[in-house]
Write a protein that binds this DNA or RNA. Sequence first.
RNA 1: GCUGCCUUGGUGGAAUUGGUUAACACGCUGGCCCUUCAAGCCGGAGAUUAGGAGUUCGAACCUCCUAGGCAGUACCA
Length: 550
Amino acid sequence: MNREDLAEFLFPNITKTVEDYEKLYPARNLEENARVTRYAPSPTGFMHIGNFLAVTISYVLAKNSNGIFYLRNEDTDTAREVEGAMEFIRHILEHYHMEPDEYEYRDTNETKGIYAPYIQSERKEIYQAFIKHLIKEGKAYPCFLTQEEIDVIREGQARDKRRIGIYGRYAKYRDLPVEEAIERIKNGEAYTIRLKSSGDFNRKFKFNDLAFGEMELPENDLDIPIMKSKDGLPTYHFAHLVDDHLMHTTHVVRGQEWISSVPIHYELFKTFGFPMPKYIHIPLILKKDGDSVRKISKRLDPEARMSYYEEKGYPAYALIEAIMTIANSNYEAWREGHPTSSFTEFPFSPKKMSASGALFDLDKLDNISKNYISRLTKEEVYEGVLSWSQKYDSEFYELLTKYKEYSMAIYNIEREQKKPRKDYTYFGEIKEKTWYMYDEYFDSSKIDFLEYDVEEVKKILTTYKSLYNEKDTQEEWFNKIKEMCENLGYATNMKEYKEDPTPYKGSIVDVTNIIRLTLTSLTTTPDLYSIMQILGSEKVLTRFDKMIAK
RNA sequence: GCUGCCUUGGUGGAAUUGGUUAACACGCUGGCCCUUCAAGCCGGAGAUUAGGAGUUCGAACCUCCUAGGCAGUACCA
């Protein structure tokens, strides 16, 4: 019996060969420099901001070269699979307008692209064909090491300060006679398929990472598992080899933590004689924790989860901009020169990517978001708040639907001007900045007049009420307030008042503040005249009367 | 332990690849403006480029040492 027999014994139903699959997955017909990138998540939970960085870079890389960006579902770890994870990822890609060109969605049974299936668990026989080939070549073998045995080996290695792993003499089953292997399998022994590594750890090879530049790594000599015993599914390393080869990925964008796996991938590609894709290892997103920094964590840091930004109502644009500034330091400068271009037009350069981990700066995100919202039209702001509230605040959503024009008028205060107001950071915040405009939320009885004397407040309101006219222009409106101030003993000239407040009861600031408090219950609001115009005389007078009657 | 990577102000980070007072943006802060706030405008503080040594006329950039951080070292990806 020989290796050929072993291969047939292990995979009797696998009839297609590596060559067959190469023909089934022909080279892509794209422009010369078009890049093929992918997002290949495992459906194990919520999407992480670090994944989003990788997605964004992959997407830009593909799109600004007329290439292809595809989605591949890496569901080989059945134990960790979380239901709905893929739907969430799909939702995120749609929300940020980074839809893949090729994909396969199990929930809706949609597939697009000729390299399907794009779900790894459905590609089992493909991987097995490649593994069968390796077995025939004597470059892979069944291994009967149990988890317990491996643990013992590891402990021993740790104790002796040796490298940890299954290599050299620890690879107990790499030369097991075929007969014995078949015998053991027939007896029902669990086995995994391991690569029979031909590497030498003491030999180095040069590897060129597009972000890090050239580095020297030791060859792999680990007999890594390539097929799991439980379900015959491949491990990540092997699936990466097969899929990215067959799907003709040109650029693999992934987190820095993968750099140490490069020797494995290098050996795998070399074993098959396949060209390696280009790699772009991207910085980790870190988080400050006291004095130290650590990788941002989904468990500890809410901002690590992509859902965080949606819940708050950050515009998709803002998050993309913020993440792009992390991806490429010259992005902001480019954006200044191309204010209306899509981020996909940005000439992304992996070389300009930071090699060290980056802290995601929420202040920076706020700033970008605020500026962005300030540039929107009132209709766009309304749309933003509406779609946010539809999902997160149904009560407010009802109100917005009911008072559409009214709400838009609020958002338009100090908007249509060269330097618009910038007080909305994200859509979820708009309610807490505008609630007082709605009678449904406003409650006169809860107003706190701070240090102001109640009788004086009533006097001012009563006086002002008789002067107020909805039709007044802003100038007329302000002149009336000034006039009233003079009659009631309040200063209208702030300079004089600051120099010597003694002849006055207070200043015009106090008077406008009292009006502001009466109408909004707040001391800080957008332009008061605009607010009164939008509220309209009916609401204004009602709110005045409630205070006067109190 | 082993292997690899990283280290410029509070944050992201620039520096034409050794050449004068280390960009820019965010944040912080003072003032102006002023009916509040925000914005805007004009300023300010904040880094002996992790530490040390060397090479050089000259070092954030090159070399060496030290320290610290991060990652991997799974039948997880």
